[in-house]
Amino acid sequence: GATAVSEWTEYKTADGKTYYYNNRTLESTFEKPQELK
């Protein structure tokens, strides 16, 4: 079976905060997504 690849990509803001962006739902969040835990 195919492994589900996380759609979340980790980015940093200009002031160094980490956030996560989902390229399928176009959602962004500062909290670590469930799929990455």
Rank of each mutant, 00 (worst) to 15 (best):
G1D: 12
N23S: 14
Y19G: 04
W8G: 00
E7D: 12
T13A: 06
K17W: 05
T25E: 01
T3N: 14
E10R: 04
E7G: 07
A2I: 14
T9R: 10
T29Y: 05
D15R: 03
L26N: 15
E10H: 03
A4S: 12
Q34K: 11
L26Q: 15
T29S: 08
S28W: 15
T9G: 06
A14Y: 03
D15G: 08
E10W: 07
F30D: 07
G16H: 02
N23V: 10
A2M: 13
E31Y: 05
E10G: 02
S6M: 09
P33G: 02
K37F: 14
T3E: 13
S28F: 15
E7I: 07
A2T: 13
G1V: 14
E10F: 04
L36K: 04
E31F: 07
P33F: 02
K32M: 13
K37D: 12
E35A: 14
A4K: 08
A2H: 12
E31H: 08
E35K: 04
E7C: 09
S6E: 10
A2S: 12
Y19N: 02
F30A: 05
A14T: 09
K32G: 03
P33A: 02
L36M: 10
N22H: 02
K32R: 11
R24A: 08
R24M: 11
T9E: 10
F30I: 05
Y20W: 15
F30N: 06
T18P: 06
K17L: 12
V5M: 13
A14R: 08
T18Y: 07
N23I: 11
Y19R: 04
Y21A: 03
G1Q: 14
E10N: 02
Y20N: 00
K12N: 04
L36F: 13
V5A: 14
V5K: 09
E10M: 10
K37H: 12
T29V: 09
T25W: 02
K32A: 07
K37N: 13
Y21Q: 06
W8P: 00
L36S: 05
S28P: 03
R24Y: 11
K37G: 15
K32H: 04
P33T: 01
A2L: 13
V5G: 12
A14N: 09
G1S: 14
Y11T: 05
Q34D: 15
W8K: 00
T29F: 05
T3P: 13
L36V: 07
A2K: 09
K37Q: 15
T3Y: 05
L26V: 02
A4L: 13
T13P: 01
E10Q: 08
A2D: 13
S6V: 09
D15F: 05
W8T: 00
E35P: 06
E7L: 07
Y11I: 11
N23M: 11
K17E: 09
W8L: 00
S28E: 09
K37Y: 13
P33K: 02
E27L: 07
E31S: 09
T29M: 05
T13L: 06
Q34F: 12
L26T: 09
K17D: 05
Q34I: 13
